[in-house]
């Protein structure tokens, strides 16, 4: 019996060509009595991922939370600083523990989630301490940083090429981010804007620009490879 499409000779057990997937049909040959090379539809039982490890992690986070709760309460029968500890532990669990529940945790989802949780925690601290720095400083700084890191992770994960563009762009964005941090510090905490952030911005922008130039110019890239290989 031969495959009508690719012409390969097929063993009797084949109902479709293993090479081109064409259905085997021969009007004079009955395939009813043929046994497959391997049994059909028999799969090993896939054990669900052990929850024991993740349970242990939860307990590891829960114990200090409980000790903090009791210590804080025993002091003057009110909760004063417990919220900070609990918030910190929950944030730590969201970043370190939560991804372990998934078979293949995708950083493109979990990194922004971690930053979002950090922003919520900062908001809580801002209200709990009657601060006035969340909207003008903490939110844009944490949000900006989260945006840059998430963008890099997403691009590295889903783009197979263009690493030099990604790293070059990240360096330039990081320089701009440092400038933003100094500016926000000056307007939130009344610190004079002296422009120290210009220096890292210039260095990072030059380095980033160099990487992008190398990405564009293959001749320059080759020279760099020749001079810098190790």
């Amino acid at each position: 019996m031969y495959c009508v499409k690719c012409g390969v000779k097929l063993a009797e057990s084949e109902k479709k060509c293993p090479l081109c997937n064409t259905t085997v049909y021969h009007p004079e040959i009955s395939q009813n009595d043929v046994q497959p090379l391997y049994p059909q539809n028999k799969f090993p039982k896939i054990k669900p991922k052990s929850k024991g490890f993740n349970g242990a992690i939860i307990i590891l986070f829960f114990i200090p939370m409980l000790i903090s709760l009791i210590s804080d309460w025993q002091n003057d029968k009110t909760l004063n600083w417990f919220g900070f500890v609990a918030g910190g532990l929950v944030l730590g669990y969201i970043i370190l523990g939560l991804p372990n529940w998934f078979h293949k945790p995708n950083p493109v989802i979990f990194v922004p989630c971690g930053f979002a949780a950090a922003i919520v925690y900062l908001l809580y601290i801002n209200f709990a301490t009657n601060g006035n720095w969340f909207l003008s400083f903490a939110f844009p700084v944490a949000g900006g940083l989260g945006l840059i890191i998430s963008a890099v992770i997403t691009l590295l994960r889903y783009l197979k090429k263009g690493r030099l563009y990604i790293f070059g762009g990240t360096l330039i964005a990081s320089g701009g981010f440092i400038l933003l941090v100094e500016f926000l510090m000056s307007i939130t905490f009344d610190i004079a804007f002296i422009g120290w952030s210009i220096y890292p911005l210039i260095v990072l922008a030059l380095l980033g620009g160099l990487l992008i130039y190398l990405a564009i110019n293959s001749a320059a890239r080759e020279i760099m490879e020749r001079k810098m290989f190790f």
Binding site: L10, S13, E14, P18
Partner: peptide, 18 residues
């Protein structure tokens, strides 16, 4: 192999209903 004139028989564990 075919281009070289060899007679090749192929067998597999391909799922019949897929």
């Amino acid at each position: 192999l075919h281009e070289m004139g060899l007679e090749v028989t192929v067998e597999s564990n391909k799922r019949w209903e897929v």
